[in-house]
């Protein structure tokens, strides 16, 4: 109890310092626990960036495009149907002309069209995509419909996303814990003076030995296991390598203090 008391008394001699140090410790220990959660949410974000194949369709403006969109949305395999505004149609028309590669000037094309962008679900087979396109042709009529080619996501983009996901899985945890560790260590170095002094005085004027190491052992054990228990309840199982890193860092600091200390003026 004396050592625990000594730990908190020396770090809370200035209460703000004490609170900052406790928070830094929670961040350091907690980083090993939250990595999985942060990783998951980041990977979810990466997965969201992935889009299914899509195509544009221009429909005679006399057709009820809202009805067509509704009918399409009801189809299995259709992720999203976007009704395009006139401005969107205009920009999409350029894309369509490019895709069709017909060499016709845009000024010559009748613009009495409404537009739709139909996005397929991710990984939808080619056959199903064709069936949806056929359905649209039947629904609107071939003479009132112009469809663009199906745009598939480039392999390059897929590779980039894949390597980004691998990077997150490999480096996120260690980087997170390393940053929290450096921050915690710097604070410890800044705040250790009061702790060293009170430990030194306890060794000099009380019948005690190895006060710094025992004090750190008591304080770190409480902070480490207390935070770990709380984080386990909140976030589940930690990353073993990271929690070992946190434990080793604290243990090494403790080992360094198993020696005769000198007064720091």
């Amino acid at each position: 109890m004396f050592y625990l008391n000594n730990f908190f008394k020396s770090f809370f001699h200035f209460p703000v310092r004490g609170v900052i140090f406790i928070l830094a410790t929670v961040l350091f220990v907690g980083s090993a626990f939250v990595t999985t959660k942060v990783e998951r949410s980041l990977l979810k974000g990466v997965a969201k960036m992935e889009k299914g194949a899509s195509f544009f369709a221009l429909i005679d403006s006399k057709e009820n495009n809202s009805r067509v969109a509704r009918k399409l949305r009801e189809l299995p395999g259709v992720e999203k149907v976007k009704v395009l505004s006139k401005a969107d149609v205009s920009s999409s028309l350029d894309e369509l002309l490019k895709t069709l590669n017909v060499g016709v000037s845009r000024d010559l094309i009748d613009l009495s069209f409404s537009g739709l962008q139909i996005e397929f679900q991710k990984g939808l087979p080619q056959r199903s995509q064709n069936l949806i396109r056929d359905y649209l042709t039947r629904l609107v009529g071939a003479d009132k419909l112009t469809m663009g080619a199906v745009n598939r996501e480039s392999q390059d983009l897929k590779d980039k996303r894949g390597s980004f996901a691998v990077m997150i899985r490999t480096y996120l945890g260690p980087i997170l814990t390393a940053f929290a560790g450096v921050f915690w260590f710097v604070l410890f170095i800044i705040f250790r003076k009061d702790f060293i002094r009170s430990s030194y005085l306890s060794e000099q004027f009380q019948r005690r030995s190895n006060v710094p190491a025992k004090t750190l052992a008591a304080g770190f054990a409480l902070l480490f296991f207390g935070t770990a228990a709380a984080m386990y309840l909140l976030a589940g199982i930690p990353q073993i390598s990271q929690i070992l890193f946190v434990f080793t860092t604290m243990f090494m600091i403790l080992v360094v203090h198993v020696r005769r200390i000198e007064w720091e003026a």
Binding site: S198, L201, Q206, R207
Partner: peptide, 8 residues
């Protein structure tokens, strides 16, 4: 109070 030793 640095000299307060509970053993004595």
């Amino acid at each position: 109070w640095a000299a307060y030793d509970t053993s004595i």
